[in-house]
Amino acid sequence: MARNSNVGGWRGGEPATLASVARHSGVSPQTVSNALNSPDLLAPETLRRVRRSIEELDYRPHRAARSLRTKSSRLIGFEVQLSAYGVFGPVAEHFLHAVSESAINAGYGILLFTESTSGNGELDRYAELSRERFVDAFILTNTCRGDHRPKLLRKRGTPFVTFGRWSARDQDDWVDVDGAHGTAAAVDHLVTLGHRRIAFLGWPRGSGVGDDREQGWRDAMRRHQLPVRGMRVSSEDDVDAAREAAGGLFPGAVTAVVAASDTLAFGCYQAVQDSGLVPGRDVAVIGFDNSPAAELVSPNLSSLHQPLREAGHACVQLLTARIEERQRDPEHILLTPELIVRESAANTAES
Rank of each mutant, 00 (worst) to 15 (best):
S5L: 13
V7I: 12
A16D: 09
A16H: 05
S28L: 00
N37Y: 06
P44G: 03
R52T: 15
A64W: 06
R66D: 00
S72C: 03
I76V: 02
L82E: 13
Y85V: 12
G89H: 01
P90Y: 00
V99C: 08
F113Y: 09
F113H: 07
S116N: 15
G119P: 09
G121S: 12
Y126R: 02
E128C: 12
R131Y: 12
C144Y: 15
R145G: 15
G146M: 08
R154E: 11
K155I: 04
K155L: 05
F160V: 02
R165H: 08
Q171R: 11
D176N: 09
H181D: 10
G182D: 03
L190Y: 02
R197Q: 10
L201H: 11
R205Q: 08
R205N: 06
V209L: 07
R213P: 04
E214C: 09
E214R: 14
D219M: 12
D219H: 06
A220P: 07
L226R: 03
V228S: 10
G230I: 01
R232Q: 07
S234W: 10
D237L: 05
D238R: 03
A242F: 05
A246T: 06
G247E: 06
V254S: 06
D262I: 12
R281I: 14
D282T: 11
G287A: 10
A294V: 09
N300A: 15
S303G: 13
L308G: 14
H313V: 15
A314D: 10
L318M: 07
E338Q: 13
V341R: 00
E343A: 13
T348V: 04
A349H: 04
E350R: 11
